[in-house]
Amino acid sequence: MATATTHAQERAAELNVLVRRQRSLWRDAGYRLMRNRAAVLGLAVIVAAALMAVFAPVIAPYDPTLQNGKVGNFEPVWTGSKYTSPDYVLGTDVLGRDMLSRLIYASRISMVVGFTPTLVIFTLGIAVGLSSGYFGGLVDQVLMRITDVVYAFPDFLFLLIIVASFRNSAFGLLLDGLVLIFVALAIVGWVGVARLTRGQILQLKEREFTEAARAIGAKPARIMWRHLLPNALAPLIVSAAFSVPGAIIGEATLSFLGVGIRPPTASWGAMIQQAFPSFSTNPWGVLLPAVSISIVMLAFTFVGDGLRDALDPRMKT
């Protein structure tokens, strides 16, 4: 193992891929990330979306659930049709609610749904994965059995069933269904993280620095926290960067299918669902939230790809 690494290094040196300055891994990764234009753009979009979500009440011109009482909906002003109004730049939906305000408020759902379950998933997944990978034993056995079953249960199928089952319970109604979506996403997601962590730990456990730590009598908790976790962090960060948009897609899809966020709360998926039946006559009601989702998704992917390339330059794809 050691010789193989030295040879790889020698090889690299031989071909003169010279490492000129010694930078720390993280600073180096940060530097690479900031040099990646797509990632910086994505980061900017995410920050903008987050600000929009936080300051929605300030930015949005109307209450997102306020129906204007006018018959028929307005189209966005740039269409130039007679069904536009300067008061509603992006038009209104079929119930006469301001599209712009709804789109802005909907970003709150996406941001919250993106980050909250990811936090839970990674805390839980890393804890289980660490102990499963390090100690083996019962936790490991149980984790592997769960993994077997989950393997046969595609994430989205599982998500659908959980959401469908609890939708009508008191719990399912909390925050217009948002809490249920959090919980469902967390239940579905943690196993993957636990598995990823476990795999990393199993590899790292055999490495010399772990042996060395154990040899000098370090306690398991210290070995895990100070030696194993930091070394397993890079793939976990990349995975978290992709987990956030995954959760956003999950919510959007559930809402689009009519089992996610409940009306009248605005979510991009729910907006599409409500406008979809009249797609042919009123395409903007569908297109605007669709474009919003696409932009946010691309932003997250750019950042995720950028992080992956920055943290593991060899994996550059």
Partner: peptide, 8 residues
Amino acid sequence: ESGCGKSV
């Protein structure tokens, strides 16, 4: 030594 150009 490594990197002296012999392999290249």
